[in-house]
Design a protein around this nucleic acid. Structure first.
Length: 147
DNA sequence: CGTTTGACTACGC
DNA sequence: CGCGTAGCCAAAC
């Protein structure tokens, strides 16, 4: 087979399915979503960490309308928007409407708004690997006074 | 059907 | 800590 994914459509559908699980007021990253996908054959895990995020970005670019997919809650690893032109500011504006505050650098703090991932049972039901939290361990609420 | 590019990320400098 | 490059898939030219 030429393509490593037997059903590329299913790959996109899975991306959208995961994106739909992101609650309002929280954000996820392309890398986190990609990490939940089972690594396809012929792709090294090191490369998949980078390429997977790229595929997720392509899937988000083809997000169909009318599916209630919160694409704005998916940001890059820097905590900002990678969208071109005015779409970037519009995305950040939508996130602020959901109650997200931007830090001094104009980005999003994953320790505050980072998504912990879907429920472990949900991952298993959809054949996905358990999600990895974007938050740093132990940064629940006690991290605030540190700064 | 070869070339280019991408809503990305890790790594080197 | 900011900037440039590599990665080597898939869809669009």
């Amino acid at each position: 087979m030429a393509t490593i994914f037997p059903n590329p459509e299913q790959f996109h559908c899975t991306v959208w399915l995961i994106t739909r699980q992101i609650p309002a007021g929280q954000v996820s990253t392309y890398a986190q979503i990609a990490a939940m996908m089972p690594p396809p054959d012929g792709v090294e895990s090191a490369d998949y960490a980078k390429l997977g995020a790229l595929w997720v970005g392509q899937a988000m670019n083809q997000t169909p309308d009318g599916q209630n997919i919160p694409w704005q809650r998916v940001v890059n690893s820097k905590g900002g928007s990678s969208l071109p032109g005015t779409m970037a500011s519009r995305q950040m504006n939508l996130l602020q409407d959901e109650g997200i505050e931007l830090n001094e650098k104009g980005g999003i703090d994953f320790d505050r708004y980072g998504w912990d991932g879907p429920d472990a049972a949900w991952c298993a039901a959809n054949g996905l690997r358990p999600a990895k939290s974007l938050r740093k361990p132990g940064s629940d609420m006690t991290q605030l006074k540190l700064f």
